[in-house]
Design a protein around this nucleic acid. Structure first.
Length: 761
DNA sequence: TCATAGCCTTTTTTT
DNA sequence: AAGGCTATGA
């Protein structure tokens, strides 16, 4: 026991001040690399040492993995008690509370959590059912609008009664969004399902309308700690505020300069205005960076200095100067990948570094492909964090839908997914009939399905009856108290999913089969894990849906890999060498941001986050041409390269020249373009704003894009598929330019110019 | 009525 | 590159 406070010696004065702040509201402004996680960990350990019961501490983190790691570290200091801490993401903690208390709101404890795909699919069907045009009402947009409303705690009732929202929607020519919101909400409720936003929204409702419950948790949580506070939204903020209002022990940790989730409703004002809500607030600033070289810290500061809204702080470091930031200019996206792969290879052998010392960070998941190929070619092992995750694969979602439906027969999205899978001759028409029958008889869909003989006769009835029997047999297993793995394995086998995949002998089919086995394995692990108290299917499904991309464990435990991920995914991590790639206008900063926002502050913060991941060496790169949705675009270097203080940069000398990744094949007529000629084509490329296509024949004979902005009536063109033709008419429709072209022998076609592969003759 | 092939559109980041 | 939608065939 006499050693217990040793860890405090490792801290600098502000860190120690934060760790040992006794009571009352505390805000820790933690600059990048300032030891934030350490402070948070030690603070919790310190509180426990002061006699606070772990049961009474609520600590909200950004990913479940971060929570797990923190719990481990605390465990090393204070021992096994650490497992009693309430620690997790907002979504997982409050999902847990809603499972206990959801009855008050009319949900059972088995409620389903809809992921984004489920939500989108439901919105899509509602749009159709209400007879609206899904080109006007784009599901993504509608969902976003609803999500923003929920995150701001605006219920559908409040939404439709608010003239401002109504006017906005009318102005946007989507007056029915309120109705969509209402219908969506009712349907989720009927399905006994909550989407991600509902988990927070409903927690707020629970605490607002059921004071006894609020009271219970307010007294339970004597200390509330919130990590990554800059990324909380209004809904999350209010929850923490309410929970801590009795004891007033709220500790928030964050960095306004790293707020990068506004698109998801994160409200930077939470951190900027925190003081207003807590006049007694104690503020500690952690400004010394222990992670990066002076060059990196100063370059990052030079980027963020352009932002207006921020809390005053001065991030500095005592570390060495370090090498300059290398800037690589590549001719194409593939070349960018090759240059960086080579760069990593050389750094590894020259500096004696490991794969895990490197990370490649990009703005969009789609950019990973080129790097995967380039790394594979030179045998460097890598891992990809995020992207199309395991749990988003079709075969996995299919089996999960079976599991979900077995747990909750009101789950509409799961029902739609599995009713005809594997194919059992139940088509849309039959499903529609069931839904109508249910509505007419005032029954739930499941009641109709499970007693189908009373409603539908004949062959269709037969198929549905078999389906119902199947589901009933699954339900029976759950009622008998079988564990999640036993049930899941039985379902995989009996439903026919496994058999169908097994019979598919293609490479794809094989990997799908393995994926399903993999899922069953993870159910097994879940059941075997002594830390999980509940081993039911329902408990398993919950952890799966709320799993964050950072949570997925590295397969085969081989951690000697280069990490590839989006900048968002890199939050909280650090690497000796970091490559920030794709620094092109419209990509980073993203086109969407350029269109929708008047300022680029969030993109700039994202750049800041990326830069500050690097410990020793930072490399920036951009490509002059890039394939996007299968079309070649010419790119302009990102304004971020202009904005960063030039004195920290150094243009890479090692520029190789190659036009395209596709090697020129010798068995074809070789290109007449000399290397010098290619070089001059590349350097004379003009940047264009949008994807504009004009084909030329490349050495490999493919059509590539170039400029159709000058296309006019009467022009002769060539299309890879329709052949030769003449432009009959040009139309401009909003931002789209269309050309009506009469093709020789193919008749008239209207093509959208931003997509067409056209060559002007 | 259902299944399939091919056409058309999409366009960031994530709990 | 992928998923939704439509037209076509069984």
């Amino acid at each position: 026991m006499q050693n217990q406070n040793n860890y405090l010696d490792k801290l600098n004065p502000p860190q120690r001040e934060a760790v040992t702040h006794p009571e009352g509201p505390l805000m820790i402004i933690a600059g990048a690399g300032s030891g934030k996680t350490r402070v948070l960990t030690y603070r919790i350990a310190w509180l426990i040492e002061q006699g606070v019961d772990p049961f009474n501490i609520l600590s909200l983190t950004f990913t479940n993995k971060a929570a797990g790691e923190m719990r481990n570290r605390i465990q090393q200091i204070i021992g096994a008690d650490a497992k009693n801490l309430w620690m997790g993401t907002f979504h997982s903690i409050f999902a847990k509370i809603l499972r206990f208390e959801g009855k008050r709101l009319g949900y059972t404890s088995d409620f389903t959590i809809y992921d984004t795909d489920d939500s989108k699919s439901l919105i899509r069907s509602i749009i159709k059912e209400l007879g609206l045009d899904d080109k006007t009402y784009r599901p993504n947009y509608v969902l976003n609008r609803i999500s923003n409303a929920k995150n701001a705690l605006v219920s559908w009732e409040a939404y439709v009664n608010n003239p401002i929202y109504m006017e906005d929607d009318k102005a946007a020519r989507m007056p029915e969004i309120g109705r969509l919101y209402k219908t969506y909400q009712m349907r989720c409720f009927q399905a006994n399902a909550m989407d991600f936003d509902d988990l927070l929204f409903n927690t707020n409702v629970l605490f607002r309308d059921h004071l006894d419950i609020l009271n219970k948790y307010q007294h339970k949580f004597k200390h509330v700690l919130v990590d990554e506070f800059q990324d909380t939204n209004v809904s999350q903020y209010l929850i923490t505020k309410k929970l801590s209002s009795v004891h007033q022990n709220i500790c928030v940790v964050g960095d306004d300069a790293q707020s990068i989730y506004a698109f998801r409703g994160a409200n930077i004002q939470n951190i900027l205005n925190f003081k207003n809500d807590y006049p007694e607030l104690h503020v500690v600033k952690l400004e010394q960076n222990y992670r990066s070289t002076k060059t990196i810290v100063n370059a990052a500061n030079s980027v963020i200095a352009r932002n207006r809204e921020q809390l005053e702080k001065n991030v500095f470091t005592d570390n060495e100067e370090g090498s300059k930031i290398e800037v690589i200019k590549a001719a194409s996206d593939n070349e960018e990948a090759r240059l960086i792969a080579t760069n990593i290879f050389e750094a590894k052998s020259n500096e004696g570094l490991k794969n895990s010392d490197f990370s490649i960070l990009y703005r969009t998941n789609a950019q990973s492909r080129a790097f995967e190929e380039a790394l594979r070619k030179i045998n460097i092992k890598y891992r990809i964090v995020g992207g199309l995750s395991f749990y988003q694969r079709k075969e996995i979602k299919d089996l999960l839908a079976y599991l979900r439906y077995t747990v909750n027969q009101n789950d509409e999205e799961a029902f739609k997914r599995i009713i005809n899978l594997p194919k059992r001759g139940i088509g849309d028409t039959t499903v529609a009939k069931i839904v109508v029958t249910a509505a007419e008889n005032n029954r739930s869909v499941w009641e109709v399905v499970s007693n189908i003989s009373q409603y539908v006769a004949g062959r269709a009835g037969q198929a549905i009856d078999e389906f119902a029997i199947l589901i009933k047999s699954f339900k029976l297993m759950i009622e008998e108290g079988k564990d999640a793995h036993t049930v899941a394995a039985y379902i995989a086998k009996t439903s026919g999913i496994l058999r169908e995949l097994y019979e598919d002998k293609t490479v794809e089919g094989l990997s799908r089969y393995e994926n399903v086995q993999e899922l069953l394995n993870s159910v097994k692990q879940f059941v075997d894990n002594p830390e999980n108290e509940e081993k039911t299917l329902s408990a398993f499904l919950q952890t799966v849906t709320l799993m964050t991309s950072a949570d997925q464990e590295d397969e085969d435990g081989d951690n000697e890999r280069v990490t590839l991920m989006t900048i968002h995914g890199a939050k909280g991590l650090e690497f000796k060498y970091v490559y920030i790639v794709g620094l092109e206008e419209n990509l980073f900063p993203s086109q969407m941001m350029l269109q929708n926002r008047t300022d680029l502050e969030e993109e700039r913060r994202l750049f800041y986050v990326a830069i500050t991941r690097a410990e020793r060496k930072l490399t920036l790169s951009y490509a002059e041409t890039r394939y996007n949705y299968g079309r070649l675009n010419y790119c302009e270097p990102s304004r971020f390269l202009e904005e960063i203080d030039k004195s920290f940069l150094q243009l890479s000398k090692s520029r190789t020249v190659s036009y395209d990744d596709t090697p020129v094949r010798n068995d074809r007529p070789t290109s007449t373009l000399s290397f010098a000629k290619k070089e001059s084509i590349i350097s004379n490329l003009k940047p264009v704003q949008k994807a504009v296509a004009t084909p030329q024949h490349t050495p490999s004979g493919d059509f590539v894009a170039s400029d159709t902005s000058k296309l006019k009536e009467g022009d002769k063109v060539e299309h890879p598929k329709f052949g030769f033709g003449t432009v009959k008419r040009m139309d401009i429709n909003g931002t789209d330019r269309k050309a009506t072209i009469v093709f020789d022998g193919q008749g008239e076609k209207t093509l959208l110019l931003s997509f067409a592969k056209l060559r002007i003759l």
